[in-house]
């Protein structure tokens, strides 16, 4: 997978924007220009990508919807070979995720059992550490495996060099030239990630400021972590999976949007496992109104922002 050649100097990560939109405030904190338009990515919403009326109303300034999803659909129509290749890759990724899940189940069960084991800590804790290390090793192995699939895809099909993609990339470069801030909305995290990758959009954007929320924040982090502890029984014992590498421009965090809905915040055991497994990254809980800022060197949480500590406790920023 191509990692963007970008080192974002300023970024803001937000909670969901549907009910408590604060993206305008975030954008205004990143640019003093009222004239420069906002570049907007809502590809995670697939065929609803263009339904951006609420966002435009809220922003009260010029918005350029980059129509990343729609562009890829048009590319597929013009380039069936690429469509077939991406479908094949999709199938491979899905099968690998299923196989990973099979391996994960046993390790999650073991680590969970050890975390709640009441025996002598001097005996139990090293075993627990070992079980969590095995989980982390599996996550790494899986991510590497997925990355190899992407590399193979790049080498065989050269998506960035295909005429159909190059033309759209040129258009995007032109659109982005005048924009002050790039906003990336949520939606389907896999669709969003893979379509951003196709255009290598973050490289085109360079080091200018970004605001991202929900799946938008997830794809910018180092690893895309899927989670839903409150899911119906469909997923079985596994409630957290690593999907693959993210775009890696927001270091050190695992964004967990909709934590109140998707995580069982009363289940300390499960949160403890989640936090320890994903170390050294910090698990950031992102709900309505939440915001943390990146200044190119470190994170600055706003008042009320929350993260998990290694004990599975939710710590709230009081500054």
């Amino acid at each position: 997978m191509r990692q963007p050649k970008s080192a974002i100097r300023r970024a803001v990560v937000l909670g969901p924007q549907r009910h408590v939109p604060i993206v305008r405030t975030a954008v205004e904190s990143l640019t003093s220009s009222r004239r420069a338009p906002i570049a907007f990515v809502s590809a995670g919403w697939e065929e609803r990508e263009s339904e951006d009326g609420e966002f435009r109303d809220h922003m009260q300034r010029s918005v350029l919807n980059l129509e990343i999803w729609g562009r890829v659909e048009r590319i597929f129509a013009a380039d069936p070979e690429l469509l077939d290749a991406m479908r094949l890759r999709h199938d491979t990724l899905r099968r690998l995720q299923e196989l990973y899940r099979l391996r994960l189940e046993g390790l999650v069960t073991a680590a969970t059992a050890l975390l709640q084991h009441g025996g002598d800590p001097s005996l139990v804790e090293p075993e627990t550490e070992g079980a969590i290390a095995m989980l982390q090793a599996l996550d790494r192995e899986h991510v590497d495996r997925i990355a190899a699939v992407h590399v193979d895809f790049e080498q065989r099909f050269h998506p960035g060099e295909r005429d159909s993609v190059v033309a759209h990339r040129r258009e995007l470069e032109h659109q982005l030239a005048s924009a002050a801030v790039l906003c990336i909305a949520g939606g389907h995290v896999g669709v969003l990630l893979h379509r951003l990758q196709l255009f290598d959009l973050l490289t085109l954007w360079g080091d200018r400021p970004v605001v991202a929320w929900s799946a938008g924040a997830m794809v910018l982090s180092r690893r895309v972590v899927l989670f839903h502890q409150a899911h119906s029984s469909a997923q079985g014992v596994v409630d957290t999976e690593v999907m693959e590498n993210g775009l890696g421009i927001l270091p050190g965090i695992v964004p967990l949007p909709h934590s109140k809905k998707r995580l069982d915040l009363r289940n300390r055991l499960s949160l403890r496992l989640l936090a320890r497994r994903l170390q050294p990254d910090a698990c950031i809980l992102l709900d309505d109104g939440d915001r943390i800022d990146w200044n190119g060197a470190e994170w600055h949480p706003h008042r009320g922002s929350r993260r998990l500590n290694a004990a599975g406790e939710v710590l709230e920023e009081s500054r």
């Binding site: 929900s214 899927l226 839903h228 949007p257």
Partner: peptide, 10 residues
């Protein structure tokens, strides 16, 4: 047939 709830973060 698990749905994309797992993959969609609004």
């Amino acid at each position: 047939f698990p749905g994309p709830l797992w993959m969609v973060y609004e």
